[in-house]
Amino acid sequence: MSNDQATKTEWPLWEVFVRTKAGLDHKHCGSLHAADPKMALQMAREVYTRRQEGSSIWVVRSDQIIASDPGDKDMFFDPMEDKVYRHPTFYKLPDAVDHM
């Protein structure tokens, strides 16, 4: 089977995001193959929330996700490395007001 045929018959990949509790963020929990959005949602329910782990699900086509390269991690996040003053603990305040 040629490469071409394989991509024609294989269902596309979807990334699954589950919200565990109302009010919280959706969290990525894995991926699956499905032919269309509706099927992807149903599959996600069967694959990732069999024990009622979710209150809602998002599915997104994997090829629609743009990701940073983990190999570039150092270079990519380096600008934030020397900015300790962004953290509240950088400032030493007198005990009486330190809960600020």
């Binding site: 003053y85 962004r86 953290h87 509240p88 950088f90 400032y91 030493k92 305040l93 007198p94 007001v97 600020m100």
Partner: peptide, 13 residues
């Protein structure tokens, strides 16, 4: 936001 308030107080101190 917590650092915002603390840096201000620290500068005044």
């Amino acid at each position: 936001e917590s650092f915002h308030q603390r840096q201000g107080y620290d500068a005044l101190l």
